[in-house]
């Protein structure tokens, strides 16, 4: 069985979380929490940490077994199968959602005349190639790409600084803490997709005592890292576009802005 290293575990998890959150999160939290929505991203994602540790303890108790096998031993054959099917359906749904989003961004902002199915097909082919290459390659893929994504995001945020309008954030907490709570609830599902992913790769994790300890810090780190980056992204979008516009733009509008900024329009 192929195994992945602790570092790969962290980057893979962070990449999954980043991929699902970075685009829609700003629009979602601002929609519920208004101009204070950015404060709810980090607490919302932090909910994932205890759940992640729970999955790890399952890995510890049933080393080398997949989610399906674990639930079959715990709940019996049929309930286990049902859980497996639900798991597959949810993962498929989420994957499709993500693919659709990516295709949508491409079609709306980059190549408007090309049908969206072309982008989706390209994405599906890539994913298939990646999956058939095995978990090792998948882990290395995230290891190579995640740092690049982080750099690109930071550049994005950094290059947008000249467009900041400071007034957009004020007044802080004008509605009290209640909207923050509801916005946080909206972020929790993203943390849960991370748990879903964790459960999926459970069978590929090494189960030594030292590694499990490192995995625990890995979960902390990836959630914290992505939480901070997402907070930055949301903050920046609110600062640049204002809350109303941020809610309307459910894709990442800063990419194009930053590109224009960089080239010097």
């Amino acid at each position: 069985m192929e195994r992945i290293s602790t570092h790969q575990f962290m980057t893979l998890g962070a990449a999954v979380l980043m991929g699902t959150t970075s685009l829609p999160v700003a629009s979602i939290v601002t929609g519920v929490g208004g101009r204070d929505g950015w404060m709810s991203v980090l607490p919302g994602l932090a909910v994932g940490i205890p759940y992640g540790l729970m999955v790890l303890s399952l890995v510890e108790q049933y080393p080398g077994k997949s989610l399906l096998q674990i639930s079959e031993t715990l709940f019996g054959k049929w309930i286990g199968k049902v859980i497996g099917i639900i798991y597959i359906i949810i993962s498929g749904y989420l994957g499709g959602l993500l693919l659709g989003q990516a295709g949508d961004i491409y079609q709306v902002s980059i190549m408007t005349l090309t049908p969206i199915s072309v982008f989706e097909l390209g994405g599906i082919l890539l994913v298939f190639y990646l999956v058939t290459s095995g978990i090792e390659v998948l882990a290395r893929f995230s290891e190579v790409l995640f740092p690049l994504i982080v750099i690109a995001l930071l550049l994005n945020v950094g290059l947008s600084i000249p467009r900041i309008e400071q007034g957009e954030l004020l007044p802080i907490l004008s509605q009290g803490l209640k909207p923050l709570f509801w916005a946080g609830i909206k972020v929790v599902p993203f943390a849960m997709t991370y748990i879903l992913f964790l459960a999926g790769i459970a069978a590929f994790l090494p189960t030594g005592k030292k590694e499990l300890g490192q995995f625990k810090t890995g979960i902390w780190r990836s959630l914290l890292l992505v939480g901070i980056l997402d907070t930055l992204v949301v903050l920046m979008q609110i600062l640049v576009f204002g809350p109303a516009e941020t809610i309307r733009l459910d894709t990442d509008p800063m990419g194009i802005c930053a590109l224009e900024e960089g080239i010097g329009f």
Partner: peptide
């Protein structure tokens, strides 16, 4: 396919390179 095509091509090359081994060394 423009930039989309180029990025798909580069991803394919990257995945191919990641899966390649030479005498066991990635």
């Amino acid at each position: 396919l423009g930039f989309f095509g180029v990025s798909v091509g580069l991803y394919v090359i990257l995945i191919h390179l990641l899966g390649l081994r030479s005498f066991g060394v990635p």
